[in-house]
Design a protein around this nucleic acid. Structure first.
Lengths: 233, 233
DNA sequence: CAATGTGAATATATTCACAGCT
DNA sequence: AGCTGTGAATATATTCACATTG
């Protein structure tokens, strides 16, 4: 079996890759609304970006559009899903059953978009046995067993930062190949393991920068319209 | 007052800006460990990146290092904080008191890193009055009042996607200038309003891509070591 | 001497602009 | 006629490599 067809295909540039989930989501919405064809202009509009970028991004998947017409929503959806491996339905484990871990477990978004939660783990006895995402929270010692039994390859890390590295070690030892890290810790992982980091507070801090600029600009504009003191033109 | 000194300074490139929170965090940890000086090599090591990149990033803030020595941890910390406006302690509002909204409200990370939660809002009567982040959940109709009273300029959006655009509109109308969007919806906002988006499920989908590649590569390696069928070298 | 700060070189990403299909 | 797919142009980001300086 497994004939020649499943082309391994060249790597998709990071920037383009990071936008595929967005396109996928927009296509899903359009599909729900009964739309069957979509142009790069429309996609760009809906994604809040440039049409050329959309076309180039999609071109990395192959030539799946029709000139003069646009893209078939269902077909393009399928191709993006295939590229992202969303035909496999990856089971994930969540490590850390605090506020964030529980929220992620209960969050519809993951299961809705095709990820099943194979287990939620913690080391805190007070959390173990509690419910999270419809499953009981297990002790971290059971991680390896679950990962192997359910063939889990993706782990979500939502522990306090002090526990992050150790938890990551356990994930890797258990056999997980990719980690989504919600802790602000920079993880050391063996070569070959992929990590993506989401720094929630960091995102806010960046907004702080923009707000500060806005404030400074506003002040500057005000100063400009008021009589200048001290500095001459 | 407000003399010439507060240099508005040139814009920091996006890529560099996005790494400042990371440096800040690493500096904080080092400081806690009593470290007083740090070199770009060390920072790079801790951040998992190239030292030249660290130096260039920091150079956008000004020349705050000492040749032959490195950076003073406390001073550099201060400069980054200043650049990110973290001397102002921005109050934020959270819209959406579902699993995620509550988790964010309760999440230590925000307050720990200097953001105070001015209010949590929802439209669901069953959630209103409940506790989130130490405060009672209020009805979204009170948003504007709170934003104005507490001078809030940053909003966190954690509603279901159907409610996201309307909630964003309300945030903007209330006077918020920056939005951290945890919904997968692409928000339409007036020019001048900043939005950063965190697509939780999207992040997982991207990991799916890497896992799929890993699987394909593993299969290819295996095939290579086994007798080839059909294709000749 | 050791480590910064930065031009110059390279690599990635975005955008333009248009030839090529349907 | 309209929209894709893509080279070529531009813009951004990363990395190199070294002169500069405490």
């Amino acid at each position: 079996m497994t004939p020649v067809s499943e082309s391994p295909r060249r790597r998709i540039p990071e920037a383009a890759l990071s936008r595929l989930p967005l396109y996928l989501r927009i296509l899903g919405e359009r599909s729900n609304e009964g739309v069957v064809q979509v142009s790069s202009d429309q996609l760009a509009e809906l994604a809040g970006m440039n049409a050329a970028k959309v076309r180039k991004d999609l071109s990395y998947l192959g030539s799946y559009g029709t000139r003069g017409v646009g893209y078939d929503v269902a077909f393009l959806t399928y191709q993006i899903q295939r590229e992202l491996g969303l035909n496999h339905d990856w089971p994930i484990v969540i490590v850390g059953a605090g506020n964030l871990g529980q929220a992620l477990a209960n969050h519809g978004g993951f299961t809705e978009r095709g990820f099943s939660i194979a287990g939620v783990f913690d080391t805190d006895e007070s959390k173990i046995g509690g419910l999270a995402g419809g499953a009981r929270v297990r002790h971290l010692d059971e991680l390896s067993q679950v990962v192997q039994a359910k063939n889990v390859s993706i782990g979500v890390l939502a522990t306090p930062s002090e526990a992050a590295q150790e938890a990551a070690n356990r994930l890797v030892r258990a056999g997980v190949g990719s980690i989504l890290n919600f802790t602000p810790t920079v993880l050391a992982v063996p070569r070959g393991v992929s990590v993506r980091k989401v720094d929630l507070a960091g995102e806010l801090q960046i907004l702080g920068y923009y707000e500060q600029r806005r404030a400074v600009n506003a002040a500057a504009r005000e100063a400009a319209s008021a009589p200048v003191r001290g500095v001459s033109a």
